[in-house]
Design a protein around this nucleic acid. Structure first.
Length: 263
DNA sequence: ATGTCTGGCCCGGCCAGA
């Protein structure tokens, strides 16, 4: 019988991979995740910093776009085998928001869901339509029986327990009843929100605005999530948010969310 | 209501996007 070991998988909205490259490489070396989903690369495919990522021991696949969006999957436990680029029937295939790969026998779906502001408006409609497509694809993943993990920046505050002061976000698309309902319906398919599952009453945030000393005041929201299929949920050992890099210079406005699975 | 940061635009502030 093979020896059991822990696999550490993280999701990090890096907010511009080239601008944040010193933060990213330092964090990879210090936190040492086995697999990472990155969001908001904000670079073209040609501008992806392949050598810098390889130099700290990771093998990446990436899906870039000029100026906005962009997602990548990094692994130091074998090359990611890409299974999907964009959602099925993606409402806008020009936006690089979803990348999926098999790594270590696990299917990793990594997303940067639409922000959706201003609400109401066409961007909000796009957010909801994108979430519908995600819902449909997630259902297929569950029905396939594959051990699957849906990680990334969902741009949804699931409940009032996930925001420091709900009234401050009440008019934001991230806290809209429609977005919350779609997230709840997604989880309701049978997924486990790893962080909330292990910490039902904790105030855990993954994003803080740059302004008004939001991080120092812990005026944050939880929008970066890791959803586990039932067969992976049984293997969940730990989950959280690593706040450490959020205090570094020239850092992202997000902090990485992570899970540890026994495999 | 405010507030910060970045890239792109086309060359110095402005604007979109988050």
């Amino acid at each position: 019988m093979p020896k059991k070991r822990r696999l550490r998988i993280a999701s990090y909205n890096i907010n511009g991979i080239n601008t944040r490259l010193p933060v990213l490489t330092r964090w990879l070396e210090e936190f040492a995740p086995d697999i990472v989903g990155l969001q908001e690369l904000k670079c073209t495919d040609e501008a992806f910093p392949l050598e810098a990522v390889q130099a700290v021991g990771y093998s990446p696949i990436w899906y870039g776009q000029k100026s906005w969006n962009g997602v990548a999957i990094l692994s130091r436990v074998g090359d990611p085998v890409e299974t999907r680029r964009g959602l099925p029937a993606d409402p806008d295939p020009n936006q690089s928001r979803y990348l999926e790969a098999a790594v270590c026998g696990i299917l990793i779906g990594n997303m940067y869901a639409p922000n959706g502001n201003p609400w109401p408006g066409p961007k909000f409609d796009y957010k909801l339509e994108w979430m519908d497509r995600l819902h449909a694809h997630a259902q297929n993943l569950l029905e396939s029986g594959a051990p699957a993990l849906l990680i990334g920046d969902y741009n949804v505050i699931p409940t009032d327990a996930d925001v420091y002061k709900p009234e401050r976000w009440a008019k934001d698309a991230l806290a809209s009843p429609e977005a919350k309902a779609k997230f709840a319906a997604l989880v309701g398919q049978g997924w486990t929100d790893a962080i909330r599952h292990l910490h039902p009453d904790a105030r855990i945030y993954s994003f803080w605005h740059y302004w008004r000393s939001s991080f120092e005041r812990d005026a944050g929201i939880r929008i970066d999530h890791a959803l586990l299929s039932p067969n992976l949920a049984k293997r969940l050992k730990a989950a959280g948010v690593d706040r450490t890099p959020r205090s570094w210079e020239k850092t992202s406005d997000h902090a990485p969310a992570w899970v540890e699975l026994e495999v």
